[in-house]
Design a protein around this nucleic acid. Structure first.
Length: 873
RNA sequence: GGGCGUUUAGCUCAGCGGGAGAGCGCUUCCCUGACACGGAAGAGGUCGCAGGUUCAAUCCCUGCAACGCCCACCA
């Protein structure tokens, strides 16, 4: 009766996973064919500069994408990841590769090396960031800006979009106030600036003298050197006499104008504002309106550049020095310290950002952002979960122009050339760069999000009309974290909608944005180096298996919310994996098979589990479709473990022992159920299910197997009811035994009697199961002899031979508790039903439900009372 | 300064107008020939606080509190 299985007795993930992965790759399961006539399912996988590195968050993201892809592939789609790490050709990755080369690693080590993380986290002795490191490595690595090379395809795409936007007037070069990082020596876009609440100072200074004086306040005293005006509100009576006149700027001695501008809030402070057009965005706008001069007072390092006593002094030193001097001159009217206000910091290195006038390249985002907002508003693109849409609109509808030039060492150089006579030429993808004396290319590189924003189509060969682009654009879904909604998703939307606007298939880069949360530790804390709670996914994969880690991540993946993860959970998943392994092994030993048709004549237990399977399949499909991975995992976990393994397999043991046609049928059903369960679980536990499934079915691979579809004709409410009754009989007897402290090995004789025909018809068919699962032996049907103790469930009385030796007190206590809840239930239901307000207004189904509840509760009361009365005194 | 979210069992989280759920942890019993990474039976919550709407509120509304996140050019 025991058949051979290929499964080792113990489950060792490592021995299963590596070889399988290689086999899938070798057979091309991970490549997609643009020419196939299968429907396309494509998703965008973030380039490495987006995901950062192969840390837990990356593992999480990969897990979600792979879950989607595997299921879709099984459902008959041509599934494509765009384009996977192997094709990544963006600038950052080149840097990374060179870095890895220095350490003697290759890209194939990516799975084990948290590569980019390392690059970003590098600090030299002075606390410098990546820049310093690159300079340090400069001797051994050839990566100067000029010689930097990029993937040709991406380069072409970047140049194409740049030129198109420029020619449409959507990219321009201008002097604007930008966020400047004096440490990294580069401009930053708005979202690269992190605002932090800080204790600063608010200093009120008197400008001008006598009747022509006015008090202004500032948190950045040093900028006063560049003031070119004082602004007041046009309707402010207090200052009306000053408007248009000039007053003297202290320390500097320059005469500055008093201007009237709507921007000034007369109720704030003194109602007068110092205007520094070169160091404040608001002031810059005021300056533009009034034709003021822009005086830049700092150099790239944020040291004072204005000739005078403070020349060369750092901005913060200058702040106190200048304050001191003003105080000496009696110019300071008030000082508020500490003054809490928020200050911008470089998101890369933490340095306080200096708003500063600078000549940079910008994208005019208004029309692009509007399109991005409309796409979601019009339902062309769906953001999932929907609750995140609000954030999207708030952002997209209020976006400022995007500063895209960076003074960094890596990145895609701006495709603009300047001629000796002031010419400016934007070089398109098919143009030759101008040559000759005096021509030079713009020194700056593009914001990394500029090239990343092209990802969905540049990776498909755009601007060429490739077969890939034809088939896979627009992509089906983008899976990514809510933290980069604005960084990356927004850029892809803007570029996609713009660049592909003439595409008949649709311009949007993806139809659905599925947002997930951040991976956190067991206490819900963000994983971070400083907390010391960062876990390398490889560590847990080695310890518990990739399936265990993946199942854990998937099981925590509620859309849009963060995922706490801890070793305990991974252990739990590993336990589930082991359970699956052992259960399947057992089934194989008992001859479970997937060969042949399902027999028409099945036992109620077989019909029950098939019925449940059909229900679970329907539910699982709906959840998978809705990106509800946590719920899918939960559903399948409980169906497999509780229903299939703990009940079905146990109930079926006795019939299988008995043999015959019924046993053959059950072997087939067992095979059928496992087959489907393994398929359903494959997306979330690919390695384990592949091994088990191929052994069970002899099939080639789950990767190319069909997704199971629910057979609704198998739904069988009667069988479900019957088994539910059986389960409650067994459970009640077990509970009785446990409370009576009856040794598990002790076999007790029992006699069954029935209170309703359905039970009388069903239960006698399960005497074998009652014996093995409830520890009863022998079990007969008939009149209960005196002295037997009755365990009663609705419809069935099980009289058990306890040889008079039962713990009456314990039993009385147990029954008393049951009675109390039943009595309570009756009272509650009666009260409700007696209330005309309830019966008058509640919907009929609810009333029926309560009525039904009352009936059962009343029956329970009678039943339990009878039991208590039957107890020996 | 705006906006959003969270508050349910010891921990991490589901649920969301009509009988409080899961995983882990905990208690008791059991090494029964698939599995002790297991099996069986349990304990544990006035669903943040205060009002309101409703026949009915953990679920809807209002206020409050705590925590968290995002956004922000108010000197």
């Amino acid at each position: 009766m025991t058949s051979d299985t290929d499964l080792p007795t113990t489950f060792a993930p490592a021995q299963v996973e590596g070889p399988l992965y290689q086999r899938w790759v070798d057979r091309g399961y991970f490549t997609a064919d643009a020419k196939s006539d299968r429907p396309a399912f494509s998703l965008v996988i973030p380039p490495p500069n987006v995901t950062g590195s192969l840390h837990m968050g990356h593992a999480f993201e990969h897990t979600l994408m792979d879950i989607l892809t595997r299921r879709k592939r099984m459902q008959g789609f041509e599934a494509l990841w765009l384009p996977g790490m192997d094709h990544a050709g963006i600038a950052t990755q080149n840097v990374v590769e060179k870095t890895l080369a220095v350490e003697g690693l290759s890209r194939h080590d990516l799975g084990r090396v948290a590569f980019l993380e390392r690059v970003w986290q590098w600090k030299d002795e002075s606390g410098g960031t990546i820049l310093g490191q690159m300079r340090r490595l400069g001797d051994s690595v050839d990566w100067t800006r000029e010689r930097f090379t990029m993937d040709a395809g991406l380069s072409r795409a970047v140049n194409t979009i740049f030129k198109r936007l420029h020619d449409d007037g959507l990219i321009y070069r201008a002097e604007r106030i930008i966020n400047w990082c004096p440490r990294d020596l580069t401009a930053l876009s708005d979202i690269e600036v992190e605002h932090l609440e800080e204790d600063g100072e608010l200093v009120s200074i008197r400008y001008g003298d006598g009747a022509d004086s006015v008090v202004v306040a500032t948190t950045r005293v040093e900028t006063m050197l560049g003031d070119t005006a004082v602004a007041v509100h046009p309707d402010d009576e207090r200052y009306r006499h000053l408007v248009g006149r000039e007053i003297e700027l202290p320390l500097v001695g320059r005469m500055i104008r008093v201007v009237a501008d709507e921007h000034v809030d007369p109720a704030f402070g003194t109602g007068a504002v110092k205007v520094t057009p070169a160091h404040d965005p608001n002031d810059f706008e005021i300056g533009r309106r009034h034709g003021l001069d822009n005086i830049n007072v700092m150099d790239d390092n944020a040291a004072i550049s204005l000739p005078g006593p403070w020349l060369g002094m750092d901005r913060f030193e200058a702040r106190s020095a200048i304050t001191e001097e003003l105080r000496r001159l009696g110019r300071i009217v008030a000082e508020k310290r500490p003054y809490a206000h928020s200050v911008g910091h470089c998101s890369r290195c933490g340095t306080t950002v200096e708003p500063r006038l600078s000549l940079q390249w910008f994208v005019n985002v208004a029309p692009l952002a509007k399109a991005a907002g409309d796409a979601v508003r019009d339902g062309v693109v769906t953001i999932h979960p929907q609750s995140q849409e609000a954030r999207w609109f708030a952002w997209v509808d209020n976006m400022h122009d995007w500063c895209i030039s960076r003074q960094l060492w890596w990145g895609h150089r701006i495709p603009v050339w300047y001629g000796p006579d002031g010419e400016t030429v934007v070089v398109g993808p098919d143009d030759d760069a101008p040559t000759g004396e005096g021509w030079r290319q713009d020194e700056d590189v593009l914001d990394t999000w500029f090239s990343s924003g092209l990802w969905p189509f540049s990776t498909l060969g755009w601007p060429d009309q490739t077969a890939d682009l034809e088939k896979f654009y627009p992509t089906t879904v983008l899976v990514t974290g809510y933290d980069i909604l604005f960084f990356w998703v927004a850029r892809m939307m803007m570029f996609g909608l713009y660049a592909m606007k003439d595409d008949p298939r649709g311009a949007e880069p993806f139809h659905t944005v599925a947002l997930h949360g951040m991976v956190r530790d067991a206490r819900g804390k963000k994983m971070s180096k400083s907390f010391g709670n960062v876990v390398d996914p490889i560590e847990w994969i080695d310890k518990y298996g990739a399936d265990a880690l993946r199942f854990t991540l998937a099981r925590g993946a509620n859309p849009g919310t963060d995922v706490p993860i801890s070793e305990d959970w991974v252990q739990g998943s590993r336990n589930f994996a082991t359970k699956l392994w052992n259960a399947t092994r057992f089934a194989l030993m008992r001859g479970a098979t997937t060969q042949g048709e399902l027999p028409a004549d099945l036992s109620p237990v077989d019909r029950w589990i098939l019925s449940r399977l059909a229900a679970v399949q329907v539910e699982a499909d709906a959840l998978y479709d809705d990106y509800e991975f946590a719920k899918v995992c939960d559903l399948l976990f409980h169906f497999a473990w509780d229903e299939v393994f703990d009940w079905y397999v146990e109930l079926v043991k006795a019939p299988l022992e008995a043999g015959g046609a019924a046993a053959d049928a059950t072997r087939r059903v067992l095979g059928e159920v496992l087959d489907s369960v393994l398929r359903l679980l494959h997306p979330v536990m690919p390695f384990l299910t592949e091994t088990l499934w191929t052994t069970l079915t002899g099939g080639e691979s789950l990767v190319v197997a069909d997704w199971p579809t629910a057979d609704l004709t198998r739904r069988d409410p009667q069988a479900e009811q019957e088994v539910a009754l059986l389960q409650s009989v067994i459970t009640e007897v077990r509970r009785f035994r446990a409370e009576q402290a009856i040794k598990p090995r002790t076999r007790l004789a029992a006699v069954l009697a029935f209170d309703d025909p359905a039970a009388a018809a069903a239960v006698p068919g399960y005497l074998g199961q009652l014996e093995s699962l409830a520890g009863l032996e022998p079990v007969t049907v008939g009149e209960a002899p005196p002295g037997f103790q009755a365990v009663v469930v609705p419809g069935v009385r099980v009289s058990i031979d306890t040889s008079g030796a039962i713990d009456v007190a314990a039993e009385r206590a147990r029954l008393g508790k049951l009675l109390a809840t039943a009595v309570n239930e009756v009272a509650l239901a009666e009260k409700k039903l007696a209330d005309p307000a309830f019966t008058g207004k509640a919907p009929q189904p609810v009333i029926d439900k309560i009525t039904g509840r009352l009936t059962t509760a009343q029956a329970d009361v009678a039943r339990i009372t009878g039991q208590i009365d039957g107890l020996p005194s």
